[in-house]
Amino acid sequence: MTSLQLKAEVEDFLYREARLADEFQLDEWEALLTDDFHYWVPAGRLEGDPSEQLAYLNDNRARVATRIRQLKTGKRLSQLPFSPMRRMISNIEVVDQGDDTISVKANFVIYEIAAQSTGELRIWPGQAQYRLRRVDGSLRMSSKWVELVTAELGQRNLTFLI
């Protein structure tokens, strides 16, 4: 596969992952994850050992499953209704390519409406770092680490899939 082909495949994957998250297509989003998926949103930069820090979000595969189940109960007040939201992804770089893992960085901006309470428009800029792996021929995500530009300032509710 040429690097252009790989780039195109990675982009397709990221755009799809983004759309599924924006649209709360939770089962379809979960189907993109490997069994060892790790999801991390630190309260600072993406550095150091995640297990030693107190983060906004630090989900192993079991916990992200719980997160999705909670969203699906229809009783998750902070996502009742689901936030109308759209994200832009850009500056996509394949930063490393091992035998079976592809490391990717991309910038994003999410526009979210806090439809559950104040109705304000919330803007979430940051960088996401993905590790992708080919499983049965198609790409899956084995980690998604998110560094928010506002990481150290504190956040409003962050109960959608970032």
């Binding site: 820090q53 107190l54 998750r76 007040l77 104040t118 956040q155 509710n157 109960t159």
Partner: peptide
């Protein structure tokens, strides 16, 4: 640490719903 992340904060399973409730009271 993991117990804290689950229970409290913007992305937690518990107090995020308290936050929405407080914002609804404020409204």
């Amino acid at each position: 640490l993991r117990q804290t992340e689950a229970a409290v904060g913007p992305a937690s399973f518990i107090t995020s719903d308290d936050a929405i409730t407080a914002e609804r009271i404020q409204a």
